[in-house]
Protein backbone atom coordinates (compact mmCIF):
# COMPACT_ATOMS: atom_id res chain seq x y z
CA UNK A 1 0.00 0.00 0.00
CA UNK A 2 1.14 3.50 -0.74
CA UNK A 3 0.22 6.61 1.27
CA UNK A 4 -0.93 9.59 -0.77
CA UNK A 5 -2.16 13.11 -0.07
CA UNK A 6 -4.83 14.39 -2.43
CA UNK A 7 -3.39 17.73 -3.54
CA UNK A 8 -6.81 18.97 -4.63
CA UNK A 9 -8.41 18.42 -1.22
CA UNK A 10 -5.58 19.17 1.20
CA UNK A 11 -5.81 22.64 2.77
CA UNK A 12 -2.42 22.48 4.47
CA UNK A 13 -3.61 22.48 8.09
CA UNK A 14 -0.76 20.15 9.18
CA UNK A 15 -2.93 18.16 11.60
CA UNK A 16 -1.44 15.01 10.07
CA UNK A 17 2.02 16.32 10.96
CA UNK A 18 0.87 16.57 14.55
CA UNK A 19 -0.50 13.05 14.95
CA UNK A 20 1.65 10.58 13.00
CA UNK A 21 3.72 8.56 15.49
CA UNK A 22 6.46 8.07 12.86
CA UNK A 23 6.56 11.72 11.80
CA UNK A 24 5.98 10.70 8.22
CA UNK A 25 4.23 13.98 7.44
CA UNK A 26 6.53 16.97 7.50
CA UNK A 27 5.47 20.58 7.09
CA UNK A 28 5.93 21.53 3.46
CA UNK A 29 7.70 24.61 2.19
CA UNK A 30 6.45 25.06 -1.35
CA UNK A 31 3.14 26.33 -2.64
CA UNK A 32 1.31 23.94 -4.94
CA UNK A 33 -0.77 24.94 -7.98
CA UNK A 34 -3.67 25.84 -5.72
CA UNK A 35 -1.58 28.14 -3.53
CA UNK A 36 -1.47 25.72 -0.63
CA UNK A 37 1.57 24.41 1.20
CA UNK A 38 0.83 20.71 1.57
CA UNK A 39 2.91 18.45 3.81
CA UNK A 40 5.68 16.33 2.32
CA UNK A 41 6.06 12.64 3.09
CA UNK A 42 9.22 11.37 4.74
CA UNK A 43 9.77 7.69 3.90
CA UNK A 44 6.04 6.85 3.87
CA UNK A 45 6.82 3.13 3.51
CA UNK A 46 7.38 3.18 7.30
CA UNK A 47 3.64 3.74 7.87
CA UNK A 48 2.02 0.89 9.82
CA UNK A 49 -0.85 0.72 7.40
CA UNK A 50 1.45 0.68 4.35
CA UNK A 51 3.40 -2.22 5.79
CA UNK A 52 0.75 -4.35 7.43
CA UNK A 53 -2.60 -3.62 5.80
CA UNK A 54 -2.21 -6.41 3.22
CA UNK A 55 -1.28 -8.86 5.98
CA UNK A 56 -4.15 -8.04 8.35
CA UNK A 57 -6.71 -7.13 5.71
CA UNK A 58 -7.93 -4.07 7.62
CA UNK A 59 -6.96 -0.48 8.31
CA UNK A 60 -4.20 -0.19 10.88
CA UNK A 61 -3.44 3.01 12.81
CA UNK A 62 -5.13 5.34 10.32
CA UNK A 63 -5.08 8.23 12.76
CA UNK A 64 -3.87 10.68 10.09
CA UNK A 65 -6.73 9.74 7.79
CA UNK A 66 -9.24 9.99 10.65
CA UNK A 67 -8.13 13.44 11.81
CA UNK A 68 -7.59 14.90 8.32
CA UNK A 69 -10.51 17.35 8.19
CA UNK A 70 -10.34 17.45 4.41
CA UNK A 71 -10.55 13.73 3.61
CA UNK A 72 -7.26 14.10 1.74
CA UNK A 73 -5.32 11.07 3.01
CA UNK A 74 -5.69 7.69 1.33
CA UNK A 75 -3.76 4.55 0.54
CA UNK A 76 -3.54 3.18 -2.94
CA UNK A 77 -2.64 -0.32 -4.00
CA UNK A 78 0.79 -0.69 -5.52
CA UNK A 79 0.74 -2.90 -8.55
CA UNK A 80 3.01 -4.64 -8.96
CA UNK A 81 3.83 -4.52 -5.25
CA UNK A 82 7.23 -2.93 -4.73
CA UNK A 83 9.06 -4.40 -1.76
CA UNK A 84 10.74 -1.69 0.32
CA UNK A 85 13.59 -1.97 2.70
CA UNK A 86 12.02 -0.49 5.81
CA UNK A 87 13.79 0.66 8.89
CA UNK A 88 11.46 1.46 11.75
CA UNK A 89 12.93 3.17 14.74
CA UNK A 90 11.00 2.64 17.98
Amino acid sequence: MKLVIDEIRCKGCNLCVLVCPYRIFQEGTELNDRGIVTPVLDRPERCTNCRLQPLYGRLLCGVCQMICPDQAITWVDERPFEPHKVEVEF
Binding site: I8, Q65, P69, D70
Partner: peptide
Protein backbone atom coordinates in the same frame (compact mmCIF):
# COMPACT_ATOMS: atom_id res chain seq x y z
CA UNK B 1 -19.51 10.51 1.37
CA UNK B 2 -20.64 12.61 -1.55
CA UNK B 3 -17.22 12.68 -3.13
CA UNK B 4 -18.41 15.07 -5.84
CA UNK B 5 -19.09 17.72 -3.16
CA UNK B 6 -15.54 17.64 -1.81
CA UNK B 7 -13.45 19.57 -0.96
CA UNK B 8 -15.94 21.03 1.50
CA UNK B 9 -16.31 24.69 2.43
CA UNK B 10 -14.74 24.46 5.89
CA UNK B 11 -11.67 26.56 6.66
CA UNK B 12 -8.24 24.95 6.81
CA UNK B 13 -7.87 23.08 10.10
CA UNK B 14 -11.56 23.28 11.05
CA UNK B 15 -12.48 20.35 13.31
CA UNK B 16 -15.86 19.77 11.67
CA UNK B 17 -14.33 17.65 8.90
CA UNK B 18 -12.78 15.36 11.50
CA UNK B 19 -16.12 14.94 13.26
CA UNK B 20 -17.71 13.95 9.94
CA UNK B 21 -14.97 11.31 9.47
CA UNK B 22 -15.59 9.84 12.92
Amino acid sequence: RREDRLPHIYCSGCGNGTVINC
